[in-house]
């Protein structure tokens, strides 16, 4: 840390450079200032000092000095309430635009003292108490509006423990960065008719329900699958077998997506991708300059959504 960085004012509220590494709170990162309650306490001390002065009362003097010392010492205690804590960036999950991204922060307390009433703030404040030599994991939410990479600001951890006269705080910047997918459209449009693909058959209504044939009942088959008609005829127990899951393919194409502007189209595509994934249709995906051959798997969906988010 250069001297210039050391005296940068923004350290007080934004903290040091963003990092991925665990951050140990030390004297460089912890700031302490009196709260307005602390200022009032100073006034209280002055008042008692005045009483002592007017009445020349030594015990009142002593009380005033005691309170002054307590005031002073609580600075150290404030520092102690944060010092040594280790903040570590945890995971976060991708969300759709409009939802809040939850960034996990792991706070560990390696020392033998309990940390009371820590306030940890990203957008909203949360309070927590960490026992001696213990850990806590907090999820801090940051709301999103637009698709693409979302970065979160500074995490501030603060405490007014023990007396509330001083507030110790430490701003920590992590590389909080998470991909935000486009918001899925609310319109339930049918999948686009695909001109290019002749493998496309009726889907959605039929796809998953195509009756394939019968086979001998096995103990692991569901009771719903039993073909009761043959059973009734006394021909034995047979199970119905369905197929067709893999027999349909659709193409989701940016060019064929309705919408006034790019965002609406992306939003609609996002919706289709999710729908297609949930009903198990194999789908191909194409954006200008990006194409994925038909598939149906979580990783396929993820790739599509990523492409949408970063388009």
């Amino acid at each position: 840390m250069t001297l210039k960085e050391r005296f940068r004012l923004s350290r007080f509220y934004r903290g040091e450079k963003a990092t991925d590494k665990p951050v140990i709170l030390n004297h460089r990162r912890i700031f302490i200032l009196p709260t307005h309650r602390g200022f009032n306490f100073a006034i209280l001390i002055a008042l008692i000092l005045l009483i002592a002065f007017v009445y020349n009362n030594n015990l009142a003097y002593l009380l005033a000095f005691l309170l002054a010392s307590i005031f002073f010492i609580s600075i150290l205690h404030s520092y102690k309430s944060l010092a040594g804590l280790i903040l570590e960036k945890g995971q976060s999950k991708r969300v759709f635009a409009g939802e809040a991204v939850g960034f996990k922060v792991n706070i560990s307390n390696p020392l033998d003292i309990e940390r009371y009433n820590l306030q940890i703030t990203l957008q909203d404040s949360k309070g927590l108490t960490i026992k001696a030599q213990n850990k806590a994991c907090m999820t801090l939410y940051s709301s999103t509006q637009r698709r693409g990479w979302h970065t979160a600001g500074t995490v501030t951890i603060s405490s007014t423990y023990p007396l509330g006269l001083f507030r110790a705080w430490s701003p920590v910047q992590f590389n909080f960065k998470e991909l935000v997918y486009p918001k899925p459209s609310k319109l339930e449009l049918p999948f686009p008719e695909n001109s290019s693909s002749e493998t496309l058959q009726g889907f959605r209504q039929k796809g998953a329900d195509d009756f394939y044939g019968l086979r001998e009942y096995q103990s692991s088959d569901s009771i719903k699958q039993i073909h009761w008609k043959t059973f009734a005829k006394g021909q034995g127990v047979f199970s119905k077998v369905y197929s067709g899951e893999s027999s349909t393919e659709i193409w989701l194409n940016y060019g064929h997506t309705p919408g006034h502007d790019t965002e609406q189209r992306l939003s609609q595509l996002c919706r289709w991708v999710l729908d297609a994934e949930s009903i198990g249709v194999r789908y191909g995906f194409s954006l200008p300059g990006f194409e994925l051959s038909p598939d149906n798997s979580l990783s396929h969906t993820k790739k599509c959504l990523e492409a949408l988010a970063l388009f």
Binding site: L62, F65, L66, F72, I73, N117, L128, T129, Y161, G164
Partner: peptide, 25 residues
């Protein structure tokens, strides 16, 4: 100022702070 007040612990901390403050006073 502590989230879950515990009488004993609070009194103990208060006592500690006073003991620490006394020499300076």
């Amino acid at each position: 100022n502590s989230n879950k007040p515990q009488t004993g612990a609070a009194l103990k901390t208060a006592f500690t702070i006073i003991v620490q403050a006394l020499p300076m006073a």
